[in-house]
Simulated assay, not measured.
Amino acid sequence: MEISDRYHSLNAAIYPWFEEQWQRVLRLHNDNHLPHALLLSGMPGIGKARLAESIAGYVMCHQPQTNSACGQCRSCVLLNSSGHPDLYFLRPEEKGKPIKVDQVRQLTEFMHNTAQQGGYRVVVLEPAESMNISAANALLKTLEEPGRDTLLILITHQLGQVLPTVKSRCQRLDCHPPDETVAVEWLVEALSVEYQEALQLLKVVHGAPLAGVDFKQQGHQALRADFLTALRDILRQRKSPPEVAGQFLKADLDLLLGWLQGLLADITRILLMGSDELVRNKDMQKMLKGVAKNSTKDKIFTLADLIQFERLGLQRRQNPNKQLLLERILIDWSALVRT
């Protein structure tokens, strides 16, 4: 691993929706009860990594203030510039790949060294669920005997995928998505958009404001619009499932399945409530009502379960045939409104 992969400067600002978690960590630290390992769990796109960096910056500060790091001591200067030698980031070597046992062994070497700047040594590991069995087992000894003034911060987007033996050695810090009003106001300022656009964007990304920023900045609006139009064309028998699958072969499959999963959740809301009042994908309201009227709960739930199963497989780094997987799901989508 290159040294630039281990260390980088921090962006340690607290999002308003994490104030409760932040105050909890401050109390633990100030009362000398900070555990040696924290497990930050929550959905992707809400800012857990930023919270982890804020925690790291605070505990490593030599002159912490009441509610924040001082920003001026030698440690803070290092954290906010080229990086701090006592702060270690551990992530997969490639996106979508597992954290390997050799990476954890390198981490163990770091943990055995003396802090170069005095005070805490901090490790931020993300995502915890990406460790393979060997890597997770190798981490256990470090979690059991981390050494003095050492903090490991593990971040997980899929708590159920983290080994119980790892979870049991960490103190959990659950990170919930923000209140809708707080998130929308934050998006309005972050993206310089109108309130209604921010509200619709937040609904599309299931309440995760940072995911909303990525969605907007990476231009996913056009891809989503094309995909949802193709789904409507399948229902109208204007396009076949294999044709649509081939059209989106180069797209992020998990992203597509997430959007389809969101549509099914909206259809379920309509079926169970007899109303479209709580529909999130407002721009597809007419199609959603049509599917709900002409389909059944069993068909909707079966397809939703299939998509969830396939998304878990993708997150576990399985490498399926994208064309065949998407074709299978789109065939079931086309069958929702047919006898």
Results as ranks from 00 to 15, higher is better:
186 W>E: 07
254 D>W: 02
242 P>Y: 13
285 Q>A: 11
208 A>V: 12
180 E>F: 13
147 G>S: 09
179 D>T: 05
117 Q>N: 13
280 R>A: 12
188 V>N: 06
10 L>S: 10
204 V>P: 09
313 G>I: 01
74 R>W: 00
47 G>L: 06
2 E>D: 08
337 V>N: 04
266 D>S: 05
208 A>T: 09
150 T>K: 12
136 A>D: 05
1 M>C: 09
61 C>A: 03
66 T>Y: 06
144 E>H: 07
330 L>Y: 06
303 L>H: 09
124 V>N: 04
129 E>K: 08
45 G>W: 03
79 L>H: 04
254 D>F: 01
273 M>G: 10
322 K>W: 01
59 V>D: 11
66 T>R: 15
238 R>Q: 14
50 R>E: 05
37 A>W: 10
140 L>A: 00
210 L>Y: 01
92 P>V: 13
7 Y>R: 05
52 A>N: 04
14 I>C: 04
99 I>E: 09
20 E>N: 15
321 N>D: 11
302 T>Q: 11
159 L>A: 13
331 I>N: 02
254 D>L: 05
212 G>C: 11
44 P>D: 01
190 A>G: 02
116 Q>W: 08
46 I>C: 07
320 P>D: 06
113 N>P: 00
159 L>F: 08
13 A>I: 15
206 H>E: 15
36 H>E: 06
273 M>K: 13
229 T>M: 07
62 H>D: 14
148 R>S: 10
81 S>V: 00
103 Q>E: 13
45 G>I: 10
279 V>D: 08
78 L>G: 03
220 H>W: 09
133 I>N: 15
116 Q>L: 12
89 F>S: 06
33 H>Y: 12
194 E>S: 14
299 K>Y: 01
245 A>L: 09
81 S>Y: 00
55 I>M: 01
211 A>Q: 11
274 G>A: 05
173 L>E: 10
215 F>Y: 12
201 L>N: 00
127 P>R: 10
94 E>V: 15
308 Q>F: 10
82 S>D: 08
66 T>C: 00
74 R>L: 08
294 N>L: 09
61 C>T: 05
306 L>N: 13
84 H>P: 04
